[in-house]
Simulated scan of single mutants.
Amino acid sequence: MTILITGATGRIGRHLVTRLLDDGHHVRAITRHPATAKLPESAEIVRGDLTDLDSLRDAFAGIEALHLITFGGDDGADLTNGAEIVSLAHESNIRCVSVLAGWGTTSIEEALRNSSLDWCRVEPVEVMYNTRDWEEEIRTHSTVSTLATYPSTMVHEADIAAVAAFALTQDGHTGQSYRVTGPEALAPAERTAILADVIGRPIRHIQLTEAQERDRLAAHGFGDDYVEFGIHLATNPPEAANQVCDTVPRITGRPGRTFAQWARENATNWWTRPRHDPA
């Protein structure tokens, strides 16, 4: 099967490209910057931009299945041209589509609902890769500071890709909306302890107040709207944030990867010794 992957150089897209290649499929990977894609040599890499329909026409030609992300451009904003993208998929005789869903419905999902394409939605709750936001603080202070205390069923990027791969290449997924989680719900303090165990040195979790979290986000250059969104999310988590779903084992036939496994795979990101003692 010939499959086109959008978002191919992203943290989930890379796993999906590799998974499909390993399964023997021909993978066409679309990126705005082919020269720096660093994807497997066996992938066909083409230039394209989801915000520019004309740049997609050649990429869509001869494709049997398509994996879509719902954002694009330099700012990663939600795509507003979903109707045009889905129409091009029709014209290109693409029949099967998987969509990596974000926080809300975008023009991509709206257009697919009004189409005759076979499509399904893959919705990760929270991606383990987000933990890399802690890297600099761990390296420099051996601490992790958060306002949030709630357990989250974070999911490994490779497991999200595996569910998408099955949806693209196997029958029976049309019309499904797959909520994808990891196999356990862990609070930030618990994830901090796992990271400390993996890298073999103490890391202290610091519980922030709302005022401290506002100061921390503002110091990173985030605007007021984003700061307040961060505060709201930390103090009012989604109701399903700590609910483990069986999607990964049910669809792929294997257990979901644990946070400890993800930490071991990414351990080199945390190995640099702190430049000074933690406060």
Rank of each mutant, 00 (worst) to 15 (best):
V127F: 15
L112S: 01
V163F: 03
A43N: 08
H25M: 00
R47W: 09
G172Y: 06
I251K: 05
I12C: 13
A37G: 09
K38M: 14
V27H: 01
E239P: 09
G172I: 07
A61H: 06
Y129C: 08
T169H: 09
L117E: 08
D74C: 10
R32W: 03
P124Q: 02
D246M: 14
A161S: 02
T106N: 01
A187T: 14
H25R: 00
P274C: 04
I194F: 11
L88G: 03
R191D: 13
G221Y: 10
D49N: 14
G230N: 10
T192M: 10
I69T: 06
C245G: 12
S98M: 00
R32E: 11
I138T: 03
E109C: 03
G200N: 03
Y129D: 15
A43D: 03
H173T: 07
A187Q: 01
I108H: 03
A218P: 04
T105I: 09
R95E: 14
D197L: 01
A267S: 15
I3N: 01
A185C: 15
D49E: 09
A167L: 09
Y178E: 12
A165P: 06
R121T: 10
R275T: 15
H141V: 15
G76H: 09
F259R: 02
I3K: 00
T235M: 13
Y226T: 11
V248R: 01
N266I: 03
L56K: 02
G104Y: 12
S55C: 08
V127W: 14
Y150W: 11
I5Y: 05
N242W: 11
N130H: 11
W119E: 05
A193Q: 12
H33L: 12
N269A: 13
A43L: 04
S152V: 14
D58C: 11
H205Y: 12
I69Q: 09
H15I: 07
E84L: 10
